[in-house]
């Protein structure tokens, strides 16, 4: 197994084991989305209209929850120093951590989204569109989140600050993700254009975020 794959596996394993936070994120998502119908009331048409946005915002918020541990632990136990001394490329290290974060904190939530879409009265077409856009868009959230996690790695209670840093940067992904879902359900709106722009954000962040995260981690050491 390569160092890159070993880092992904370690990130996933650390998130799933006791206190890792992957389960917390999933439960948070389930809770947030399931209280919406109680707050909005039994207007099924309204629920169906805001449903895609609710699911997207739920994913966006849930994926913030584990960011403080993503690099915080590496800072605490000296692992970050050992990674730098090992000669492994730092952007690759950040990319591996972000991929592992997505697998543990993103993918389970995305897979739970269509099930929760049922209680928001989403049509089968909308359920498919939400799942597809989340699958393609949530990796971008993990990448942007990794930059926030890297910037706040050395801070006590850095999670809140990471969330504040990450949310504005995630807004474009949210806008185009929800726009693509609406395009799929409402006829005159386009689906492909916003969907492709969102995919472009994912690719864009996969290139830039590791570089930015690596620089942030290095700066934090000085």
């Amino acid at each position: 197994m390569s160092a890159f794959a070993a880092l992904i596996v370690q990130t996933v394993a650390a998130s799933i084991r006791a206190g890792g936070g992957a389960l917390t994120g999933l439960l948070f998502f389930l809770t947030v989305v399931s209280v919406i119908p109680f707050g909005v009331g039994p207007d099924l048409n309204l629920l169906a209209r805001i449903g895609p946005a609710v699911l997207w915002i739920g994913v966006l918020l849930s994926m913030l929850l584990g960011l403080d541990r993503l690099f915080g632990q590496d800072r605490e136990d000296g692992g970050l120093e050992l990674v730098i001394v090992s000669g492994e490329s730092m952007p690759l290290f950040v990319l591996a951590r972000a991929c592992g974060y997505w697998l543990a904190h993103g993918l389970p939530i995305v897979l739970a989204a269509p099930v929760l879409g049922l209680i928001l009265n989403l049509s089968p077409l909308a359920l498919g569109a939400v799942t597809l856009t989340l699958l393609a868009g949530s990796p971008a959230l993990a990448m942007i989140g990794a930059v926030g996690g890297a910037l706040t790695a050395g801070l006590a209670r850095g999670g809140m600050l990471a969330a504040i840093l990450v949310l504005p940067l995630s807004v474009p992904v949210l806008i185009f993700g929800v726009a693509a879902v609406n395009g799929a359900i409402a006829d005159p709106d386009p689906f492909l254009a916003p969907f492709l722009i969102m995919c472009a954000f994912t690719l864009f962040s996969a290139v830039l975020a590791p570089i930015a995260g690596a620089a942030a981690l290095r700066l934090g050491l000085d």
Binding site: Q10, A13, A14, G20, D77, G78, G79, E81, L82
Partner: peptide, 12 residues
């Protein structure tokens, strides 16, 4: 490097 930070994750 062998230093104070040993890079050992407690959960593993």
């Amino acid at each position: 490097l062998l230093a104070y930070g040993d890079g050992l994750r407690n959960v593993f």
